[in-house]
């Protein structure tokens, strides 16, 4: 196609936002352009360098593009780039920094399942899954991606307001010898040592130990 006159201001802050390796390219609209701006996106595998267009993100007016599928191999690193169009004018291609899915992703907290008896609570933690192409696709736990993955568990006694802290490698924890009829709130965090990654703490899951039948 005829070369457009590329003096449109550039898209800004082109970067990947990645959670559990769902890798989405984001950017801000060019300064002062208002509505009507369209964009196209391309990406490349670092070291191969052939730029590949993303058809689903051609002539789009939104400022994001999901490149999870194209960047699913976390043993590779990637660049992505965005170009803006408006009224026959275009911007330059604006690139991300080099994106390493393994180290640049954020990890969600684990899911927490809690059950209780009279004097104990049992906690089962589940690490989030790596993004997958389709709901029916093969599930890969982040535990497989990060073998050194550990859990930090916080247990709060609602009566005494005291919080205890456990660091465990496997995904189950039983806390025995608790006070009957007392509410305990549990939250957990994922901690990977190499590379250094840490999720936030999950929301708190509260459960009460059963009342002492003999009392």
């Amino acid at each position: 196609s005829g070369e457009l006159y590329c003096s449109l201001p550039n898209p800004r802050n082109v970067h990947f936002e990645s959670i559990n390796m769902k890798n989405v390219l984001h950017w801000s609209a060019p300064e002062g352009t208002g509505d009507g701006v369209l964009y196209k996106v391309k990406y490349s595998v670092y070291g191969i360098g052939k730029w590949i267009r993303k058809p689903e993100c051609r002539k789009i007016n939104r400022t994001w593009c999901d490149l999870s599928s194209e960047t699913a191999d976390y043993e590779e690193q990637y660049y992505a780039s965005v170009k803006a169009f408006l009224n026959g004018m275009c911007s330059d291609w604006m690139e991300t920094t080099r994106f390493n899915p393994l180290t640049d992703t954020k990890i969600d907290p684990p899911t927490v399942n809690v059950s209780s008896t009279e004097k104990s609570i049992s906690i089962i933690l589940t690490a989030p899954e790596k993004w997958k192409r389709s709901p029916g696709g093969e599930s890969v736990s982040l535990l497989q991606v990060y073998p050194g993955l550990q859990y930090n568990v916080s247990v709060l006694n609602k009566k005494t307001k005291k919080r205890w802290f456990f660091s465990i490698s496997n995904n189950t924890l039983v806390v025995p010898w608790l006070e009957p009829g007392t509410s305990y709130c549990v939250s957990a965090q994922i901690h990977v040592t190499t590379p250094l990654l840490r999720s936030g703490f999950s929301k708190e899951y509260c459960i009460a130990t059963l009342k002492d039948k003999t009392a």
Binding site: R163, W164, F165, W177, H191
Partner: peptide, 14 residues
């Protein structure tokens, strides 16, 4: 062995 000491660490039951 304790790495994270940001809050009270549970050792065991007594």
């Amino acid at each position: 062995m304790v790495k994270d000491v940001s809050s009270t660490v549970h050792l065991d039951t007594m």
